[in-house]
């Protein structure tokens, strides 16, 4: 194996002609210096290796989080800057702001509407892929293809497909004698259209993750169940699904974190940050962007961002709690 190049025993690296002996302490001053240097290397290198991550994360991840909290306690404008401390006034306003509750409802609603079909479809696709078949590799490529696309590009294409006048989806519905749907007008219809974009992109990705977990299920469990006379469907519900539960919960946590910040799809669906004439699909991230940058109210935008962060953490903790509950059960 190639891995053995330098570290291979009995083949000292040419760059270091005097390999340090592992046994007795070094005698000459030069040896002692080298020994000290290598001890320092062993002791401090690990910290040096993790330091870049923490420094960069601290500056561009953690500090902005803390700074957001600071800004949210001030009257802070895009033009004019910091106009003074206001305590929790921005938060007090937020909890009486109908636009915030509207955005919260939209964000959670789109998440719910997207996540359930996503899960069911991904499990079904994974189960189909988990069979002996021809072209299995090709089908895997096809289902992961949507994941390997540009989100904005796809949002534009779906935006046109969901057009009320010339959209192909309404055209297909007309075959069944259905009236054209104004997808952008209603709350549920716009949520459905956005959920379709999200699920189109993520079903295949999740299916591959579930497929890997399915392949890891010990095969003798199925054999034993089959000997006991359990049907295929029964095996799926009583063996596959319970063993896949940690995987499913993990993917749900990840899509929670992602979708609570939903922004690109609804912005391109509507062509602005208001999310429709009545804000029927304005998400929390869009509200933050709208308040912070279009209206230039940094203080309020920061308060929205912090509340969103707290919501994400709460959702994640809830999921982790459920996961550990299931594990111990």
């Amino acid at each position: 194996m190639k891995v053995l190049r330098r570290g291979d025993q009995g083949d000292p690296a040419p760059a270091e002609p005097d390999p340090r002996p592992a046994g007795p302490p070094p005698a000459t001053p030069a040896d002692r210096r080298r020994h000290r240097r290598s001890r320092a290397d062993i002791r401090y290198s690990p910290y040096a290796f993790v330091a870049p991550f923490f420094v960069l994360f601290g500056v561009f991840g953690l500090f902005p989080m803390v700074y957001t909290a600071y800004i949210s306690m001030h009257d802070w404008e895009l033009i004019g800057g910091n106009l003074g401390y206001v305590g929790f006034a921005n938060y007090a306003f937020l909890f009486t702001d109908p636009k915030f509750y509207n955005a919260l409802l939209n964000t959670v609603g789109i998440f719910m509407l997207a996540v359930v079909p996503q899960l069911v479809l991904a499990l079904a696709v994974a189960d189909f892929l988990n069979r002996r078949m021809r072209f299995g590799g090709l089908f895997r490529v096809l289902v992961i293809l949507p994941y390997v696309t540009s989100v904005a590009a796809i949002a534009i294409v779906f935006g046109q497909l969901f057009g009320s006048e010339y959209g192909l989806i309404n055209y297909v519905l007309s075959w069944g004698g259905l009236d054209p749907v104004g997808w952008r007008e209603g709350r549920l219809t716009s949520w459905a259209a956005i959920s379709v974009m999200i699920d189109w992109r993520w079903v295949g990705y999740n299916a591959l993750i579930y497929l890997a977990a399915m392949q890891a299920v010990p095969k003798d469990m199925y054999e034993a169940a089959a000997i006991d006379g359990a049907s295929r469907l029964r095996q799926f519900w009583q063996i596959t699904i319970p063993l896949l539960r940690p995987t499913v919960i993990f993917t749900v946590i990840m899509s929670t974190i992602g979708q609570m910040q939903l922004f690109t799809e609804p912005v391109l669906f509507g062509g602005n940050y208001q999310g429709g004439s009545q804000g029927q699909y304005q998400t929390i991230a869009m509200l933050m962007f709208d308040e912070g940058f279009r209206y230039g109210d940094y203080g309020y935008g920061a308060a929205v961002a912090w509340v969103l962060f707290v919501i994400i953490v709460l959702f994640s903790l809830l999921n982790i709690l459920i996961t550990s509950r299931i594990k111990s059960a």
């Binding site: 561009f60 953690l62 933050m288």
Partner: peptide, 24 residues
């Protein structure tokens, strides 16, 4: 402790820090 710290950072959405990042 550091490993747990790394996992914790995955919960922090960088995108949500856009306002202070912009000021920076």
């Amino acid at each position: 402790a550091i490993t747990i710290g790394v996992i914790g950072t995955m919960m922090v959405p960088v995108q949500m820090g856009v306002i202070p990042l912009l000021i920076m």
